[in-house]
Amino acid sequence: MSAPDPQVPPQVVVRNLGKSYGDTLVLERVNLEIAPNSFCTIVGASGCGKSTFLRMLLSQEAPTRGSILVDGEPLPREPTPDRGIVFQRYSVFSHLTVEDNLLLAAEFEASPAIGRLFGAARRTAMQEIEETLEKIGLAPARKRYPSQLSGGMQQRLAIAQALLKKPKILLLDEPFGALDPGIRADMHELLDQLWKELGMTVFMVTHDINEAFKLGTRMLVFDKTRHDPHAPDRYGATITYDLPLNAGAKGRAPPVSELFANPKQPLHKGTRP
């Protein structure tokens, strides 16, 4: 079961979170506690608000009601370096080469006035990204621009860049949605390895339920529990399944068809049929 270990306080606490755009209710009554170092995968039908949830975790959007606490503190109102992000597209800077993309974080930190390093300082910073370049296999492509890279290479760069500031939380919004299946498997390996090495909490929105099972330690399914056929926007989605996916639980997970069968009652954390 997903009941968190009482010894470890949860890192992320979501309380009665709701989001609406005008009259359209996207999310409602989302409650969640996430332990540190979880790998949380988020699945759901298109338009079910899973990306909205991720954007609220990023502070790209503000909740309409409810709150999100990280380590007991409310989230800052804008994106900050403690939460890294990888989008499906446009995650890297198209006007910078691979190595400049990776240098940028160090340049922002060391040079407030112009955000640029020169000479010895630049060489030192370059040495620090050398290992990253090797690890993501982009050392031979270091002088290339992102549009000269394959989709997989671009996303490897995006992940590496998102981890430069050593965020406590890494947010991934369908990061492999545009990649070939073979490349995707390589990416899973890289991501899994990085997550184990760096010890951070990962939230990953995905369309691919197999990916969600494979990578996650916990899977959240977003869906609407109430429908008004005359006013489809009246009710929002919430978490309908919250599955722990440790090695033993993976075998006992309900079949996919059941996960999306629109349960009539909202299922609360830890209760499933």
Partner: peptide
């Protein structure tokens, strides 16, 4: 996405203007 990425990399408004 790029602007948000820059924010998560710790950029100030001035740095975003000059580098992005």
């Amino acid at each position: 996405e790029m602007i948000i990425k820059a924010e998560t990399l710790g950029a100030s408004v001035w740095q975003m203007l000059t580098r992005l």
